[in-house]
Design a protein around this nucleic acid. Structure first.
Lengths: 98, 98
DNA sequence: ATATTATATAAGTAAATAATTATACAGTAA
DNA sequence: TTACTGTATAATTATTTACTTATATAATAT
């Protein structure tokens, strides 16, 4: 895949309000997948699908933790993705007890 | 419109290979709309529609010049858009005689 | 005025997107 | 084992997207 195609794919992954909110939640560190349902106010499968897109674009990574799955930002980002993350205001939310 | 919605709209405008190529062509300065048809290898109306999306997102501006229309990057960009432009390699192309 | 040229808009279409509900899968606990 | 819980996948649907061709608009030239 050409460079510009890869860039377009990554940008497409972040060009959605719900996925930007996911990134905003992740600015402080790891978050349990279950917490996102209340933040976005969409169904659990929808959250799962959005997380998948960010993961496939290499922007976030996951870590299984028993029944749960914790997500965090990839520590290495393309500069243009990092600039987007930097520009997002953090979103605070109610955490589950996992 | 909330901040994050505006951000998503701008990012959506640049999350397409053809529109990224348009920006890459514009890095050096003004370009006549007609030149883009050969660069993207799509129809003239398709080019016109893609330029419109970038313009509506505030990323490029146009300047009528007789029958022609010249496009250039907006001099003020959001930092996350500027980072994308900075990351693009310039594209050189055959210029028309307008 | 008409003809020509560059660009924009309209209408239509195939593919992609983002949600939904239903179901499957995986790990933990009894 | 079975039951329960968190997450992922499948199937469906409405909307959006990015083209196409055809047509309209606007400026220039004759």
């Amino acid at each position: 895949m050409k460079n510009i195609e890869l860039m377009a794919k990554q940008l497409k992954a972040v060009s959605d309000p719900n996925r930007l909110k996911l990134l905003a939640c992740l600015k402080k560190g790891e978050v349990c997948a279950c917490d996102f349902v209340d933040v976005l106010n969409i169904s659990q499968p929808a959250v799962s699908q959005q997380l998948k897109k960010l993961k496939e674009a290499g922007i976030i990574v996951d870590r299984p933790a028993g029944t749960w799955k914790h997500y965090r930002l990839n520590e290495m980002q393309q500069p243009y993705i990092q600039a987007i993350i930097d520009h997002l205001d953090e979103i605070s939310f109610q955490r589950c007890d996992c």
